[in-house]
Nucleic acid binder design. Structure first.
Length: 729
DNA sequence: ATCGTCATAATTTTT
DNA sequence: TTATGACGAT
């Protein structure tokens, strides 16, 4: 796709091929002598290439065993990419090599040493939603008012502390009520995690760090084993990750860190650029190598980006250059409002496509997700296929998580997490009242919900109806557990789908959403069938479940060739021929909540830098003279626009693009092509015989208007408004 | 127990 | 604008 990548490798490499395709700085990095090394890799300077070639070089010329190498990334995408590239480079299978995300590697370590880490062998990984659910239960257990103590904020604060390595017990109890309450919640949350054998994302890292700190034998074994440690996106490491790296690299002192302080955009979730800034101080004798030659963008784009980022202070300093041409200037368009902006962008993409370019080489970038909607609407009425990044991911979907909860309950009946989720899903008449009784009793007796419900059935203390419902539920789970023997993962999944009643439940539902949910369930069976466990000895079902938690799966499936819409954050690491940087207004970008403190502004500026450097040949910057978003109006153009030297900018005059329809014209537009008789492109409608569909476009006026609908089951149809009898859903 | 309605709040996101 | 949760009605 658009993962920034350099030359493809299709031939096996010999030793000289490792260095020859590299420029001087890259070669220096790849063939650097032992010792700590920081590679300051600017945007588009070939950092993944340096990382993979470094590994190849170590293995091929320095006789380092692949098993003595630890390569860490942040995202699954990056780790897969790295693995694949190393495999091609070395042309040997590297299944056993330790390449992965911080979280996946820590998970692996905790699995291997669960006992030493103080975890039950059946510990579960909580994803974000699971964690929120648990925090909610804690808040309710403490009878805290959720309007006073917002759930998300509490969750955020807990994670914030954990990412700094602070346990609840490390926190002072606090002076004011806020701190005291947080402390209380955190303590209870940790207790619940311990009691239920739950591990959240931050816990994976913290627990591993503590394991290493406390257990000398294990620590030294790994310190000894990993002669060479490589980290990608070093500027994104948080406090624990950094300490973890320091600890594990201590014996051999070979830390190869690749990163870019100018692309540090995750400070708000605990990333510390300081880790990179102080590298030389923290690792005495460290070498620093700068990769400044850019292979991606035209000269104008690079110069402009350099100028913007130069406004930040306390950088390590770096200036991108290219030996390519200056290219076209950066274009700047002042839209009258957000609709004008969207139309301008889409018109430009259409013009560009006329030259035979690909849609997926064009990207629309914005600061916050809410901005995507207007683009989507305009793209839809222009009938341009598009894809929005950042939606739900596969394993995060409720229907998928429900099935997984069943599967979890099959392997460990005592998982309260799973029990809670599906005891009454699909609805089987076990209401809150019943569950509350079980929960309360379980808490008193310190037993699992499953055990407790067994006891409660036996004691007959619930109403007869409830008792029999709970019994039926247990029998259902038991019979599925019995059916597991001798089946493979795919068969188990299928069996669960059918016998839990989940499949039937979603099939009964009407609507497009239910259809896609059923599709997702089928896709889950597929995924289970194709799942190949990493550790052969281990239970493949358990591995599948952890896989689901750690790799939340693909983003929503994209059509082949779509215009790409995403936030600036998710654009990091990607590149496109044509980039539109939209919504450049003060308050929106830089975001109002970052404006207070200089550090906030600097991070926003880096975000701007990231956005600009995504473009290969054409960068267009847009701002609106008046934009409404939620209840706010944004009017002032972003300060970042002013930071780009005028010589690189070409202002696009609004008059050159005839449509500039503020209020008056806009309402007219609305009646002609935008909205007819209350119908608008993008709306979901129902038709007597064609079922449900999405309005694509409208033509004409009044009852004679023709309306173009894409039906779920019948495809595209053109209908006359007056006769179609469409019902908006 | 379940369904529908109303109010509310809303950067950025990976694991 | 939309998603979520609380609350009340059936």
């Amino acid at each position: 796709m658009h993962l920034a990548s350099d030359t493809e490798y299709n031939i096996e490499m010999n030793v000289s091929d490792i260095l020859t395709p590299l420029n001087e700085a890259q070669q220096q990095a790849v063939s650097a002598p032992p010792g700590p090394l920081l590679v300051l890799a600017g945007a588009g300077s070939g950092k993944t290439r340096v990382l993979t070639h470094r590994i190849a070089w170590l293995v091929r010329t320095q006789e380092v065993s692949p098993l003595a190498i630890l390569a860490v990334t942040f995202t699954n995408k990056a780790s897969h990419e790295m693995r694949a590239r190393i495999e091609t480079l070395l042309d040997i299978p590297i299944r056993n090599m330790w390449v992965g995300t911080f979280h996946a590697l820590c998970y692996r370590l905790l699995r291997l040493h669960f006992e030493a880490a103080g975890l039950p062998s059946s510990f579960e990984v909580l994803d974000n939603n699971d964690q929120r659910g648990l925090v909610r239960r804690v808040l309710r257990g403490l009878e805290l008012d959720e309007t006073l103590w917002p759930l998300r904020q509490m969750q955020w604060m807990i994670n914030q502390h954990k990412e700094e390595g602070r346990r609840a017990t490390d926190l002072p109890e606090g002076r004011d009520v806020g701190q005291q309450t947080l402390h209380k919640v955190y303590v209870h949350y940790e207790n619940e995690c311990r009691r239920l054998g739950l591990v959240d994302f931050a816990e994976l890292l913290l627990r591993t760090l503590e394991l290493f700190r406390q257990n000398q034998v294990i620590r030294e074994a790994y310190q000894q084993r990993f002669e060479q440690i490589l980290v990608d996106e070093f500027q994104d490491t948080n406090s624990i990750q950094y300490q973890w790296l320091r600890l594990i690299s201590k014996t051999h002192n070979n830390l190869f860190a690749v990163g870019d302080d100018d692309q540090s955009i995750y400070g708000w979730r605990g990333a510390r650029v300081e880790n990179l800034l102080h590298f030389e101080k923290d690792f005495p004798g460290a070498t620093v190598i700068r990769l400044e030659q850019n292979y991606r963008s035209s000269g104008n784009i690079l110069n402009a980006a350099n100028a913007v980022i130069a406004k930040n202070v306390g950088r390590l300093g770096k200036e991108l250059w290219t030996d390519g041409g200056a290219g076209t200037p950066i274009r700047l368009y002042s839209a009258s409002n957000e609709i004008d902006e969207a139309r301008f962008v889409i018109k430009n993409i259409q013009d560009w496509l006329k030259d035979g370019r690909r849609r997926d080489d064009a990207a629309i970038l914005y600061r916050s997700n809410a901005q995507s909607r207007i683009f989507e609407e305009e793209l839809m009425s222009a009938r341009l296929p598009y894809q929005v990044y950042g939606g739900m991911r596969f394993f995060e979907r409720a229907e998928i998580k429900n099935v997984l909860a069943y599967m979890r309950l099959l392997t460990s009946h005592d998982s309260d997490q799973a029990f809670d989720r599906i005891v009454n899903f699909p609805p089987r008449g076990i209401g809150d009242k019943t569950i509350d009784v079980i929960r309360e009793r379980a808490r008193q007796n310190e037993k699992s919900l499953w055990q407790t419900s067994t006891e409660i059935i036996a004691s007959n203390e619930l109403p007869a109806r409830a008792t029999s419902r709970v019994r039926e539920f247990q029998q259902c789970i038991d019979s599925m557990t019995n059916a597991m023997g001798g089946r493979d993962l795919g068969e188990i999944t299928e069996h669960v789908l059918v016998h839990s009643g989940i499949l039937a439940h979603y099939k009964e539902q009407r609507g497009e959403r239910a259809i896609s949910q059923v599709e997702n369930l089928e896709e889950l069976v597929n995924a289970a069938r194709n799942f190949s466990p990493e550790e052969v000895e281990e239970d493949s079902l358990a591995q599948f479940l952890s896989h689901a938690a750690l790799e939340s799966g693909e983003r929503q499936e994209g059509e082949d060739d779509c215009v790409q819409l995403m936030t600036l954050h998710s654009a990091k690491g990607l590149e496109f021929q044509l980039v539109f940087l939209c919504g450049m207004e003060e308050g929106l970008f830089p975001h109002s909540r970052s404006i207070q403190e200089p550090r906030g502004i600097e991070e926003e500026r880096r975000l701007c830098y990231v956005g600009m450097t995504r473009a290969r040949e054409q960068l267009t910057i847009c701002h609106a003279n008046s934009r409404r978003l939620y209840r706010q109006v944004y009017t002032r153009r972003s300060r970042f626009i002013g930071e780009i030297p005028a010589e690189y900018i070409e202002e696009i005059q609004a008059t050159r693009f005839a449509y500039k329809p503020p209020k008056m014209a806009r309402t007219m537009e609305k009646t002609t092509t935008y909205s007819v008789n209350g119908f608008t492109p993008g709306q979901q409608v129902r038709h007597k015989s064609f079922g449900e569909g999405t309005i694509i476009s409208l033509e004409g006026q009044g009852d004679h208007a023709r309306i173009n609908v894409n039906f779920v089951d019948f495809g595209r149809k053109c209908l006359v408004c007056a006769y179609a009898n469409l019902e908006v859903i």
